[in-house]
Simulated scan of single mutants.
Amino acid sequence: MHNALQVFTIVVVGVMVGVEFSVAFVINRILDALPEDSGQLGRAHGGRMLGAVMPVWYIGSLVLVAIWAVTGWADPGAGLVVTAGALLVLSVVMSLLLLVPINNRGKTWTPENRPADWKQQMKRWDRYHHVRVAVIVGAFALLAAALV
């Protein structure tokens, strides 16, 4: 049962990392290259869609890692799992303090109501998101290493 939990946790966290990586390095670059207001509208839609899903995914991943840490406390890789959990906590805190406020504004913007500095706000979100991606990639790597 513990092995199933480990595999399930790694798959859930790994897919989350993949989604966030693709947002950072693929989707947003595509949206930014679209003509006129299409990119901003796409970002707003993405903010609404992923803004509804990602909190559950982040918290669910953290809960799975916590269960793994508790049930596998005596395992050799327990320290790696706990450290991965700490990184996921950091990613949630970063999300709440840095990314969610910008996303909550951006998901309501249209070409008619967006602020003059909307591009600067999106660039700030992108920078924070790149850091968050690095943090969750680190957590994922630690979880994978914990199995070895």
Rank of each mutant, 00 (worst) to 15 (best):
H2R: 13
N3L: 15
V7D: 04
V7H: 07
F8E: 07
T9K: 04
I10M: 09
V11H: 10
V12W: 00
V12E: 00
V12R: 00
V12C: 00
V13M: 04
G18R: 07
V19K: 02
E20K: 07
E20L: 13
F21Y: 08
S22L: 03
S22T: 09
F25Q: 12
V26Q: 14
V26M: 11
N28M: 14
I30C: 10
L31A: 09
D32M: 12
A33Y: 11
A33K: 08
P35V: 10
P35E: 10
D37I: 11
D37L: 14
D37G: 09
G42L: 00
R43Q: 12
A44C: 04
L50F: 11
L50K: 07
G51N: 01
G51E: 02
A52T: 13
V53N: 12
V53Q: 08
P55M: 05
P55N: 03
P55D: 01
I59Q: 15
I59W: 15
G60R: 01
L62P: 03
V63K: 01
V63P: 00
L64I: 04
V65S: 00
V65A: 03
A69V: 04
T71A: 11
T71R: 06
G72P: 03
W73H: 12
D75H: 07
P76W: 04
G77D: 02
L80T: 06
L80F: 09
V81E: 01
T83F: 13
A84Y: 00
G85E: 05
A86F: 05
V89K: 01
L90D: 05
L90P: 07
L90S: 12
S91P: 06
V92Y: 03
V93Y: 09
M94G: 08
S95W: 13
L96R: 06
L96Q: 08
L97I: 10
L97E: 15
L98A: 10
L98Y: 12
L98R: 12
V100L: 12
V100D: 11
P101D: 04
R105S: 08
G106D: 09
K107H: 08
T108M: 12
W109P: 02
P111M: 08
P115R: 00
P115V: 01
A116W: 10
W118Y: 09
K119G: 10
K119L: 13
R124N: 15
D126Q: 13
Y128F: 12
H129R: 07
H129G: 05
H130N: 15
V133P: 03
V133K: 05
A134Q: 06
A134Y: 05
V135G: 06
V135H: 12
V137M: 07
F140A: 01
F140G: 00
A141H: 02
L142S: 02
L142Y: 04
L143F: 01
A145E: 11
A145P: 10
A146L: 03
V148G: 13
